[in-house]
Design a protein around this nucleic acid. Structure first.
Lengths: 348, 348
DNA sequence: CGCAAACCTGACAACGCTGTCATCCCCAGC
DNA sequence: GCTGGGGATGACAGCGTTGTCAGGTTTGCG
């Protein structure tokens, strides 16, 4: 190796070159192709040849170079996973599911976060597709994903999660956002609340739109009027939440319950409520880790990220098997986990 | 393409073959090698040639096949990351840091979980190294990692995190476990506690040993006697925790404070304490997401997973630059986040 | 004008593997 | 003894890229 010269000082096993099929073939006294047959478990190898080759593989510690194999075959046995933030428990759980399924098929999972930046989404996704993976699972942030069109044309299977993709025809796995909020609202209505406030994310976000629509639809379906100043949408943050709560607790007509539209808003709301006299019933979209430790308890609408990841892998497999199939949009059910909040009648 | 025949029904852009450098070269009327020069930003290309090639690249939508490049160069521009569970917030945060650094260097991150299974650790790690990545970051679970010796000999940079690796010489980045527990104990001692219980993980776990050793050392350093039945080590779980608490709250001589050795134990302890009359001061190793929402507050020893991931990437870079350097073990400081618990004097 | 140096370009091999096809051998069957 | 067929093996090309080296053209300068 050329860099041996710069490796002065290395003692014994100075940077050994990996054994290749060629090395194994020489050691076993067979042709390279025969080694390939053995490595790939083809059955047309005579027993004693097989034995000799396997022995040489063991002796040299040979392992197949997947990169070379994949170049030859035109596809990398891998799945790209682009999420908004892998440190977000929701996406981490999706990642776990994807990884679990990938392992069964001996696929490598390449992971990256967009951190809600459209340019990064694109950069990370294209960085993955340049490796020619079998599939790409993507939590879309950018307005359009049409930068993936060439990859799709070339046979890449794509599945959107959390939000649908735009500008490309691909499968998608989404939570049933509206139904989740319906569960939350009906839980509160059922226990006697009528003055219910809603705090949601910026309506530019797809899921936020679906959730607030679910809120309005459910309230309307039960003939409960909604005061517009009790439906507040904005970027989660202390200022937004503080202002929203101030309006909702206007003494002339305070709400008795709150529905929060995502976990960042929930956290902010709970922090604010700790310092306020009003203690409205809160039902939150998104489960919180350790929510069962909170006192009072917090009733939540839990998404099912593992089911989402699983379903996404299913859809990828189906698309790889039949690239012509119609793109499908799957809705994963959410469920209400009652932990006390909203189960007492309104207190004012 | 051979599979065009099976693609009956595809309309317009039936599975296009990706353009290669050869295609670009033909389109631009230059040699393949010149395209390579342009793609790699070499400066020895005449301005008008450059222009022609770039135009052809744009027109064909050419993107370099990283797999082929990496085969040629012998290394995949990638980092393998094997953690215990990517859905664990601690490892997810390490993942985020690694990914962030990797992105700067245009490295792909391959991620996988061992789920505390030595065989899986090995399988996942070897699956990654078969792709010849630049580096591997590993949270060791298996007794020994010597299955990686061939990869090391071939130039793979390895860095252990969370726990040291065994059977191989490699860098490691660990939390300063003993110092963390010292902070916890001294926090309690400082506020008047003397009867302090310790609940830790199974001593088979490296970090658990370091932490309980920190507990004993600190108590001894302050001349506070330790009752053996108040130091309980075992696999986190309801039964273990319930039994441990029963002993510690023995009416004849109950503890007034508890130190918990990891987050699973902490969660279990808090659940149990909610149903008990005793309300000892708890200081926990590992921060909990949303711990600030808990009432009463929970003082914690927070590890710094982002710093761990960062440091691991640093060490990999240094090792790649100089494969002969001595392996180093880095200790990342932890810090105490006071949130109220343990700040009042003992109540019994 | 001549020659070296600098610059630009391309032919070719190789990275490690697999697909295709050819070859060889052995034995059954006539 | 000859042919056919099937099983075992190997030679070779090629996946898409980059490193090496050689060749050709231009420029600078004595």
């Amino acid at each position: 190796m050329s860099n041996n010269s710069s490796q002065i000082g290395i003692t014994l096993s100075a940077l050994h070159r990996r054994p290749t099929m060629k090395d194994v073939a020489e050691a076993a006294g067979v042709a390279l192709k025969t080694v390939s047959r053995v490595v790939n478990g083809e059955t047309t190898v005579a027993p004693d040849t097989l034995e000799r080759v396997q022995e040489a593989i063991r002796r040299l510690g040979y392992r197949r170079n997947e990169g070379a194999r994949e170049l030859r075959q035109g596809r990398t046995q891998a799945i790209g996973l682009v999420v908004r933030d892998i440190a977000d428990p929701f996406f981490a759980a999706i990642g776990r599911a994807v990884e679990h399924r990938a392992e069964e098929d001996e696929l490598v999972v390449m992971i990256g976060s967009s951190h809600d930046d459209p340019a990064r989404e694109r950069q990370v996704a294209l960085g993955f597709t340049a490796r020619r993976p079998n599939g790409l699972i993507l939590a879309p942030i950018a307005k359009r994903q049409d930068y993936l069109l060439p990859d799709i044309a070339e046979g890449l299977a794509i599945c959107a999660v959390d939000r649908p993709a735009q500008g490309i025809a691909c499968d998608a796995v989404l939570s049933d956002n509206a139904a989740g909020i319906r569960l939350a609202v009906e839980h509160l209505l059922h226990h006697g609340h009528r003055r219910i406030g809603y705090l949601g994310d910026d309506p530019a976000v797809f899921t936020a739109r679906e959730r607030v629509a679910g809120f309005r639809a459910t309230m309307a379906g039960h003939d409960v009027p909604v005061n517009e100043h009790e439906v507040r949408l904005g970027s989660p943050g202390p200022d937004f939440v503080a202002a929203a709560l101030r309006t909702m607790f206007d003494p002339s007509d305070p709400v008795t319950a709150l529905v929060t539209g995502n976990n960042r808003i929930t956290a902010e709301v709970l922090k604010h409520l700790a310092g306020r006299p009003e203690q409205p019933a809160v039902v939150a979209f998104d489960d919180l880790e350790l929510a069962e430790l909170l006192r009072p308890g917090l009733t939540v609408i839990a998404q099912d990220p593992v089911a989402i990841g699983d379903a996404a892998m299913d859809l990828l497999a189906k698309r790889l098997a039949d690239p012509t199939r119609e793109p499908r949009e799957l809705r994963i059910p959410v469920r209400l986990i009652p932990r006390g909040s909203g189960e007492a009648p309104p207190t004012n």
